[in-house]
Design a protein around this nucleic acid. Structure first.
Lengths: 163, 163
DNA sequence: CGATTTCGCTTAACATGTTAATTATATGCT
DNA sequence: AGCATATAATTAACATGTTAAGCGAAATCG
């Protein structure tokens, strides 16, 4: 049930140590995410939308409208990528972009009725896939993992290079 | 100490449910990984190497030589990306590519002495950063998280779409 | 008020992610 | 051997990641 894995380290010429690549937080997070996304990708592809576009309109579905900075942060997308994506999503009729009347620098992005309709359609499959994942992992264990990931976030974010 | 977070669900018109985007496994894994990588990026950038290139030569440092398929799998890089990267890394003198004498389709990629020297230099900083992360998270908690991530991998990989 | 600085977003340039199609080689089958 | 199929890698085309630079609007400061 529990796995007592190898915490092996590689001895390098000069004496310092390097963790085995496979057993490393960046790789482990990446591989776990790929395993999860492999289950969503068919549904995303069938709906002719990318993973990132899906995140963006889903955030907008929750918020209704948001400025580009907040949207980028919530969707985990860098500003340059978001700029390009907004054109695509606007051309598809899922969002509308307008200037903030209070602040001429900001852009306000809102989801359209068409965008909401798309979410309503696709989220059926999405929810089913997520339920399947939850069943495979166990609801409690999944919640625990989400807590741990949030712990990592809280612990590593902000304080730049102390210690 | 423990966080009792919201497991809120969004009610959608038609009655089915969609988990809040923030509290979702793909996003949580992505955000956690970004928090981790933010600590490595300065070091990678200072050494003028990308995150993916670093993974590739590090894998080769561990294996010595490998065919492209295994290398791509271990480094979590798709074949088309690897093809492009190999040119870059070969031009920089970190690797050498040769055809497999037994199988004309395969390519065998090996790390060079120069590549090893690069790892030896850069891995000092890398190991220091990883140690800092381990200290911030706690060694035990980190190992536990790695185990959980491996559990996700084992549970979600392979069996394509069974219940 | 005007100059400077900061902020929000965009553009540019290059690297990688992603899927489909292609090529060359191996393998299986008869 | 001859043919169909499978495999390994590549190419193509488009989307996104990543860093730096650019630009207009807003805030700040003297």
């Amino acid at each position: 049930m529990e796995q007592s894995r190898n915490h092996r380290k590689l001895d390098v010429e000069d004496g310092f140590e390097l963790a085995e690549t496979r057993r490393t937080l960046p790789i482990a997070l990446l591989r776990a995410r790929e395993a999860v996304m492999d289950r969503f990708r068919p549904m995303l592809h069938a709906n002719d939308i990318t993973e990132q576009q899906w995140r963006v309109i889903r955030i907008l579905f929750e918020l209704g409208e948001a400025d580009a900075t907040k949207l980028a942060e919530l969707a985990c997308i860098l500003p340059p990528s978001l700029t390009r994506m907004l054109r695509t999503l606007e051309a598809r009729g899922f969002i509308v972009v307008r200037k903030d009347p209070t602040d001429g620098r900001k852009s306000l992005i809102a989801i359209t009725a068409e965008g909401r309709a798309f979410i309503n359609l696709a989220s059926r499959d999405s929810a089913a896939i997520y339920a399947q994942i939850e069943a495979l992992l166990g609801a409690d264990r999944l919640q625990h993992l989400l807590n741990e990931l949030e712990f990592v976030l809280d612990r590593l974010s902000g304080d730049s290079l102390n210690l």
